[in-house]
Design a protein around this nucleic acid. Structure first.
Lengths: 344, 344
DNA sequence: GAGAGATATGTTAGCGCTGAGATAGAAGAT
DNA sequence: ATCTTCTATCTCAGCGCTAACATATCTCTC
């Protein structure tokens, strides 16, 4: 069967135009059109313009599936996120998209819902599109997931967290160190009876690392955590308020509380407002993330700013630097910044 | 050149396994493997198991680009969002992903950054993957974007907003009506000197619709807006506080303020705290969206809950009901809910 | 003015999969 | 035993593109 379609047929064709149509209309070969599109090889200016005009009139959009198949290069980056409800992930994704904007790469996002079994399945369906790289939040993978990422030759960036051994590259910050610095900060400010309010970290290993860092700092200073309260579900302002209230009931003498993140701390702040507790004078509050909401509070929240946008951007940039996975594993520390605030 | 690869070659092949490899190993034809994978056509149980085992041992992942090309069905849904920094969009995306989870479809997201020129470009790169449907936030498109969506036969869902003429289907709520109901709510509660605090709505036509609805309600009640203050950039708690402060300086007699959304209202609440203004007794506050943060405030925010998650989910479900675009345009009203709260 | 080297374009064979149709064997009907 | 009808499988031609190579034309050299 002849695949070519003549001009008069093309005009009555209901289907989507292809290279053949453009080539026919411009009076050149398919390959020439392809080269114009990809800016590859020498093309006479007249030809280029003729082809561009044909593309324009037909409203031709190249079929990336065909391109990917033919060139075994997909221009896709797979992104594996545990959730989108926690603001940090959308922010990360914004950074990824921002970096991608300059390139002709596309992100393909999968949301695992903190479920490792789903992660496997979703990774499979991402890999089905043969991305050139995968960005995944954190180091928590099932053995099979790790195997898939490890054996495939694609570039892998594990982001947010650098307290672990990366498969290929890691971009983020040391949560353990951030937790440690939180402890140091509170100690230096003279707080001695320090408590902790957190959320369920079974799905959030970074929060646990911060907690561990915090404890280490206290231990190193000859102190200890007075008490702690951990909410069951995910972090939220509501949970932060409730947990703080519970903690203070048990330990009224606590003079500072480190929260697992800003959401929780914000809830803690609201609790203090309702309960008439003077923030900082009577009770210091410290968060993590540096969210806008914390800085908008009547007293700006003392916290650690982790730059999620930068992490996403940096991850993409670093991944795209080299197409091949280098033998050396790379760790990019995007750092963090202590925000003094007014609550601690 | 012969494309087949013999077993011993397959084992030394560094590349990704393909159907051919699986077929060889299972001792069947490629097509049989394909049918097993897609659960299509009659397959003897023994054969199926043999093929599945081969897939397992090779770690075979089907190449969707090839599949898409061969079957002209991509199992992809393009999603066009203006931004990810405003929580409502990640929430929408969560709904989309949740609905997609049950299916074998994948979302492919593009972020336009509220820029119509970029929208065109990003839509092009999404269409390059030949999605079966596109979900886009709102009705604001350039002529070219609209043309691309209109002429292509793919399904299109315009979401969040139903105050407009959809290309194919619209899923969301009437922001004009929500604004109107906000006005009614405040009037019924006895407020008479009502002000408005908003953000730059040049990129947020929904906020403008709510504003218009609000004004309509006031007009219908023989009232008017006492004054309004609009921040320049995007909405934020900080901006909400500043604008409320500015508004009250000009109009100290205002007894209720409708905010463009909960972020702004939260900032307004904080301003009242700092300025010692008794919320509700002296000044009522009303938001929009029903975000968690608003409900966690010491006084739960009075607001309108728009269910973004549901909108995303519903959009996907409705789109996937029929592969072909029906002649009738469809509007799905997901509604909203007035949250009485304690601030108005 | 023959050969070397650019420059611009054409030709052809796949990439990995699917859909339509062909085929072979078993089971049932006559 | 012959003809149907299934069921299970195979064969093969593309899908729309790109890479590699081939070809044609046009400069430059010496």
């Amino acid at each position: 069967m002849e695949a070519r379609i003549f001009f008069w047929e093309m005009m009555t064709q209901p289907g989507i135009p292809t290279l053949v149509h453009v080539a026919k209309l411009a009076g050149v070969s398919e390959n020439t059109v392809s080269r114009v599109i990809r800016n590859k090889g020498a093309i006479a200016e007249v030809t280029r313009e003729r082809v561009l005009a044909a593309i324009q009139t037909l409203g031709y959009v190249p079929n990336r599936a065909a391109g990917s198949l033919a060139s075994s290069g997909s221009m896709l980056i797979g992104v594996l996120l545990p959730s989108l409800s926690n603001v940090v992930f959308p922010e990360l994704l914004e950074g990824i998209h921002a970096a991608l904007r300059q390139t002709s790469y596309q992100a393909m996002v999968g949301v695992t819902d903190y479920d490792e079994a789903q992660e496997e399945q979703i990774l499979s369906s991402l890999l089905a599109w043969r991305p050139v790289a995968v960005i995944t939040a954190g180091f928590d993978h099932t053995a099979k997931t790790r195997m898939m990422l490890d054996t495939s030759s694609l570039r892998v960036a594990e982001v947010m967290d650098i307290d672990g051994e990366p498969i290929d590259i890691a971009v983020g910050l040391s949560h353990r160190k951030a937790g440690y610095d939180t402890g140091r900060f509170l100690i230096e400010r003279g707080y001695r009876r320090i408590g902790y309010v957190g959320h369920d970290w079974s799905a959030d290993r970074r929060a646990r690392h911060r907690y561990e860092g915090l404890r280490q700092a206290l231990t190193d200073a000859g102190l200890g955590l007075v008490d702690e309260a951990r909410a069951e579900g995910r972090s939220s302002a509501t949970a932060g308020g409730e947990m703080l209230s519970a903690l203070l009931r048990r330990q009224p003498s606590i003079d500072a509380v480190a929260f697992s993140n800003d959401d929780m701390a914000t809830g803690g702040f609201f609790h203090c407002l309702s309960a008439g507790i003077a923030v900082r004078e009577r009770l210091a509050l410290f968060g993590f993330n540096g969210l806008e909401i914390g800085q908008a509070l009547p007293l700006p929240l003392s916290t650690v700013r982790s730059n999620r946008f930068l992490i996403g951007k940096k991850a993409v940039e670093t991944l795209l630097e080299h197409r091949m996975r280098p033998t050396e594993r790379l760790v990019v520390d995007t750092g963090y910044e202590i925000v003094e605030g007014a609550t601690a």
